[in-house]
């Protein structure tokens, strides 16, 4: 999988957005005494952390399910 030149710019934007949103989240958290309805809303930048964990969770779970159990050859149903 090779990268094209245009994609590098895209990555730049992505990293900047990620950084800015995390910094803004931290600032907002320190300034605002949040009226947290849930426990996790008190965690700073919870969404970013959840995104990180969620990605790993989904990818690992779906890949594990696929490799060890659910995936078959393309003509599996015709043969069995």
């Amino acid at each position: 999988m090779e990268m094209k030149i245009g994609q590098k710019h895209l990555f730049g934007i992505l990293y900047v957005c990620l950084a800015v949103s995390i910094v803004a989240g931290l600032l907002l958290h320190s300034h605002e005494q949040a009226h947290a309805a849930f426990v996790w809303q008190e965690i700073p930048v919870f969404s970013a952390i959840y995104g990180f964990i969620g990605c790993i969770l989904i990818i690992v779970v779906s890949k594990a399910l696929g490799h060890h159990w659910l995936q078959k050859e393309e003509d599996y149903y015709e043969k069995h």
């Binding site: 990555f11 992505l14 990293y15 957005c17 990620l18 949103s21 995390i22 803004a24 989240g25 907002l28 930048v45 919870f46 969404s47 970013a48 959840y50 995104g51 990180f52 969620g54 990605c55 790993i56 990818i59």
Partner: peptide
């Protein structure tokens, strides 16, 4: 802001 965090982190993780 929280949506932005969630999605940019996902984009980062995808690559």
């Amino acid at each position: 802001l929280s949506t932005l965090q969630l999605l940019t982190m996902t984009g980062f993780m995808f690559f």
